[in-house]
């Protein structure tokens, strides 16, 4: 559900206080100081120390162990599959998400409000239920005769389901703000529909699309619950990284599990930075 973190950059308010702050570095009273202390202790115990423990466990065996783990045949295959599926799902989301946002903002038809709820449903549904939901229609007792269990198509479908809202929900507000008059002006100056879309609309939407895409990619790469019932976990065929981590944990190989986890985090960071750079270039070219 991490849709919103790119929309709201970070809660730090305007710049000016920075300079004014110098004479008094802290505005904490004694009571709020104690509160802050307690909050930081809880946050460290719950989040910071455990996450550090993962990095430590990955680094514990040294660089060689780390490399050996992630280049091991099955694990490397799982990571490749995860990244490939996530990339594919992100591409579909970029196209379909933008189209859905477009229809929701610009089109008018009865029942449109129902679609709004339908789009949020994949966020609200527990992931294991999402898996079960897809299995009930596209699983062993499928009423339509499609069975995606233990296939890569099944993984693709599950990822498509859980990442549905990201691009829609980041593009929609930007599209709402977008002035239709600019498009009309472009059209009246003789621009074709395709040109208007490419030169006017796309640059304006690019940052939002990239933000949604990176959220979708990050989610797809770390997805677990919806894949448990569907993926089937055949090594080198339908085993994704998160399920490989589970297998390592259940086999008491915590260091190996941590290595894959750290690698996934790295891939996610690289892709998010790359998408941000691309969107800036598109937006600047105009």
């Amino acid at each position: 559900m991490s849709t919103l973190d790119t929309e709201r950059p970070e809660p730090a308010p305007a710049q000016p206080p920075l300079r004014r702050r110098r004479p008094r570095r802290s505005t904490l009273t004694r009571a709020s100081g104690v509160g802050l202390g307690l909050a930081v202790v809880w946050f460290s115990l719950l989040v910071l120390i455990p996450l550090a423990a993962v990095v430590i466990a990955a680094a514990d065996g040294g660089w060689d162990t780390f490399v050996n783990t992630i280049t091991d045949g099955d694990t490397a295959a799982a990571i490749r599959l995860t990244v490939a599926e996530a990339a594919l799902v992100t591409i579909v989301n970029v196209v379909m998400g933008t189209v859905i946002a477009w229809v929701l903002v610009r089109d008018r038809f009865p029942g449109k409000r129902v679609l709004e709820v339908v789009i949020d449903l994949p966020f609200a549904l527990p992931t294991i239920v999402a898996g079960l939901v897809l299995l009930s229609l596209y699983g062993p007792d499928s009423p339509v005769g499609v069975n995606v269990v233990n296939t890569r198509q099944g993984i693709f479908l599950a990822l498509l389901f859980v990442t549905l809202p990201f691009v829609v929900r980041t593009v929609q507000p930007v599209l709402l703000e977008l002035d239709a008059e600019v498009e009309e002006a472009a059209a009246s100056l003789g621009a074709s529909r395709a040109t208007t879309f490419r030169r006017i609309i796309l640059p304006a939407l690019a940052p939002a699309i990239a933000a949604g895409a990176s959220l979708a990619f990050a989610r797809a790469i770390s997805e677990f619950g919806s894949l448990v019932l569907i993926a089937g976990n055949q090594p080198r065929n339908t085993e994704v990284a998160s399920l490989k981590i589970l297998k390592y944990i259940e086999g008491d190989q915590q260091a190996a599990a941590a290595s894959v986890a750290v690698l996934l985090l790295l891939v996610a960071v690289v892709v998010i930075v790359a998408l941000d750079l691309i969107s800036r270039r598109v937006a600047a070219r105009g």
Binding site: L51, V54, S222, I249, A261, L265
Partner: peptide, 12 residues
Amino acid sequence: PMSVSPVVVGLA
């Protein structure tokens, strides 16, 4: 916390 995979949360 929201960008960490649930499996990794458990592992952590």
